[in-house]
Simulated scan of single mutants.
Amino acid sequence: MSPTNYTMIGLMSGTSGDGLDIAYCSYELQDQWSYEILDAITIPFPIDLGSKLMNCHKLSAMDLALLDVSFGKWMGEKVKEYCTEKQIKPLAICSHGHTVFHQPAKGLSLQIGNGWALHHASGQRVINDFRMKDIQLGGQGAPLVPIGDRLLFPNIDFCINLGGIANISMESAGKRIAFDTCPFNLLMNAQANELGAEYDKDGDWAKEGMLNEKLFNALNALTYYSRNNAKSLGREDLEDDFIPLLSESGLSEKDLLATLVEHYAFQIAKVIKRHQPTAQPSVLITGGGAYNSYFIERLDSQLNNSWFHTEATPELIEFKEALVFGFLGVLRLRKENNCLASVTGADLDSSGGVIYG
């Protein structure tokens, strides 16, 4: 008989490249799954490593292979230090890795952070490479979090994560569906960087800017938004489709931020209105963008104030993805599906992840 209580560490290195999230979590199965984030920290990347990770898609094959191993080793060392300090022994370390390429149409999604290096440096069992099995089954390999949304947050109508890219997850006609709704911090942080900050705190600069209707309409007209099947956005899509529109607009950084916020609020509200099961659906918002109070204000306006903003603790806002990757590892150890075909467009549900040790 399978155990019903698991303690795991989830590791998340997001596309925005700020650091490594480490979440030590427990998961328990009774009538339904419950969870607790026992402890969680973010370890900033050393400047050299952070720079390499942000530019890893431009590296030579040899340099990328070396970074794969050195990044895995670095994560393992950090996890070992963390476990020693906290005097904990999780069942496994569940690592998302750092995405270099995401091109599911070509059968490819590459996350670096070598599993053997991570296993050896941490001294712990490791589970990683959660995406590739689904991609070989014809899926997008993303998003992976929706199975966690379904089983850990069963009473929430819409789970939204606002990271480098925004995604949404919901039940529709008895199936879980989810997809990337639009870019998010990857584009906004670039404008904030031009203004001398890492991000637009509370959306204050966006609030000072002016909405540009021409750019707003051009963004909404991108073909990505007319696709209704399983879909996901990668850095390549931003570079090919979104960034040229921003560059050619000639707008100031603040006007770009204001227009991006309105674009994001419009696209996310459109999805909620299309799928809402009640007149006032419950919405859980996590990821760094959850702190952008101006975006929340504009989303509220686009939804005509008809929604319930589910309260989330700062820990859940910042570490939900790491929490869910720990849970994907639990399902993998139980040999249960942790990737939903209804979400990714694969031929069938699957249990993905490679186990080391």
Score class of each variant (00 low, 15 high):
Pro154Glu: 07
Pro154Asp: 05
Asn155Glu: 15
Asn155Val: 09
Asn155Tyr: 13
Asn155Thr: 08
Asp157Gly: 03
Asp157Pro: 07
Asp157Arg: 08
Asp157Cys: 02
Asp157Tyr: 05
Asp157Phe: 03
Phe158Ala: 00
Phe158Tyr: 05
Cys159Ala: 15
Cys159Phe: 13
Ile160Leu: 08
Ile160Ala: 10
Asn161His: 08
Asn161Pro: 06
Leu162Lys: 02
Ile165Ser: 12
Ala166Arg: 05
Ala166Thr: 10
Asn167Pro: 01
Ile168His: 02
Ile168Asn: 02
Ser169Asp: 02
Ser169Arg: 01
Ser169Ile: 03
Met170Thr: 13
Met170Phe: 07
Glu171Gln: 13
Ser172Cys: 11
Ala173His: 14
Ala173Pro: 13
Lys175Asp: 15
Lys175Cys: 14
Arg176Met: 03
Ile177Tyr: 02
Ala178Val: 06
Phe179Lys: 03
Phe179Cys: 04
Asp180His: 00
Asp180Ile: 00
Asp180Cys: 01
Asp180Val: 01
Thr181Glu: 00
Thr181Lys: 02
Pro183Ser: 06
Pro183Ile: 02
Phe184Lys: 09
Phe184Trp: 05
Phe184Thr: 12
Asn185Gln: 02
Asn185Tyr: 01
Leu186Gly: 15
Leu186Phe: 08
Leu187Thr: 07
Leu187Arg: 01
Met188Ser: 12
Met188Asn: 12
Asn189Leu: 13
Asn189Gln: 15
Ala190Asp: 12
Gln191Trp: 01
Ala192Arg: 12
Ala192Leu: 13
Ala192Thr: 11
Asn193His: 14
Glu194Leu: 11
Glu194Val: 10
Glu194Pro: 09
Leu195Cys: 11
Leu195Arg: 08
Leu195Pro: 12
Leu195Phe: 05
Ala197Ile: 08
Glu198Lys: 02
Tyr199Ala: 07
Tyr199Met: 09
Asp202Met: 06
Asp202Asn: 08
Asp202Ala: 07
Gly203Ala: 09
Gly203His: 05
Gly203Pro: 09
Asp204Tyr: 04
Trp205Phe: 04
Ala206Asp: 11
Ala206Glu: 12
Ala206Val: 04
Ala206Gln: 05
Lys207Glu: 06
Lys207Arg: 03
Glu208Lys: 15
Gly209Pro: 07
Gly209Arg: 03
Met210Cys: 15
Met210Asp: 15
Met210Phe: 11
Met210Val: 13
Leu211Asn: 05
Leu211Arg: 04
Leu211Met: 05
Asn212Ala: 06
Glu213Pro: 14
Glu213Asn: 15
Lys214Glu: 15
Lys214Ala: 15
Leu215Cys: 14
Phe216Lys: 03
Phe216Gln: 04
Phe216Ile: 03
Ala218Met: 04
Leu219Cys: 04
Asn220Pro: 01
Ala221Asp: 15
Thr223Ala: 11
Thr223Asp: 14
Thr223Val: 09
Tyr224Asp: 07
Tyr224His: 04
Tyr224Gln: 04
Tyr225Pro: 07
Arg227Pro: 15
Arg227Leu: 15
Asn228Ile: 00
Asn229Val: 00
Ala230Cys: 08
Ala230Arg: 04
Ser232Tyr: 11
Ser232His: 10
Ser232Thr: 13
Leu233Glu: 00
Leu233Met: 00
Gly234Glu: 03
Gly234Trp: 02
Gly234Ser: 10
Arg235His: 09
Arg235Ser: 14
Asp237Gly: 14
Asp237Phe: 10
Leu238Ile: 02
Leu238Gln: 12
Leu238Val: 06
Glu239Asp: 09
